[in-house]
Amino acid sequence: MVSATSQAPAGAPLVQTNVDYDPNVVIDTQNLTKVYSDFWGRSKVRALKGLDLEVRKGEVFGLLGPNGSGKSTTIKLLLGLLFPSGGRATIFGKPTTEVSKNERIGYLPEESYLYRFLTAEETLDFYGRLFDMPSDLRRERAAKLIEKVGLKWARRRPLREYSKGMTRRIGLAQALINDPDLVMLDEPTSGLDPLGTREMKDLILELKEQGKTVVMCSHLLADVQDVCDRIAILYQGELKEMGRVDELLEVTNQQQIRVEGLTKDAQAKIAEILAQSGGKMLDVSSPKNTLENLFLDIIRESQARPGARGIIGSGDDNGGR
């Protein structure tokens, strides 16, 4: 029953009026720009500069960038918390200011901005009501989600008594209360212990298996590397890199050979006599960089040479990393 109600509730079906809408594209931004202005309308900060982004159905998409790079601004623009200064953005083919799009979205903010005087059950009941869910469905989903995030033992305690990790868990539960098609996670593993982090990553992969689309921002690059299919790296409001994680991390001008059962002599002379050594070749491939190295390289390069950069996903040659 839970999985069957991921669409709009009965009586309020989502009507798709955008004729150009591709159902496989969940998020689409074109030249999305955000300029923060002061009281008098004077430009203060150009937080996002012409972002072109496309997130496809069923993928786990990561937004990376240092502080102030425009990640949160992008998420807020997509959720309608901010209004764009230029360009356009659609989610499920609808403008981001349209309320009905939220029926298919689950959002976990970077801090769990929840009402601390409510208990876990009351919290989920409240957010369930906001989705206009009937009471039996709210109860059923709340019970399942509380169990899923491991808070059954604390479900009747007010959130003010929760630790940060527990608050993140209940925050995740509220993001999933409507069984969303698109889950937007802002720093999902922040505040979680290693076990909790592992569970969160498993959950993201589980959501992917269920066909959900996940968009996440994170500073924890290892987490992103573990779960994301594609990533975009933002720096100072500009998109610096976007593509599949495995492609981005591939060092294309080098090869690595994995062998097994070599003698010590052969190991010493492996560079010259690999073919005659008698060893069994297992794999020849390019070595992988770490995401951390990639990220730092891009940031350093951007600092040294400001401006747009060739993007691997867009077909530009990214050189030999």
Partner: peptide, 14 residues
């Protein structure tokens, strides 16, 4: 101010 409104207005609430 506390940003709890974020979790409300990102639901289908008018």
């Amino acid at each position: 101010l506390s940003k709890t409104i974020y979790t409300v207005v990102t639901k289908p609430v008018r």
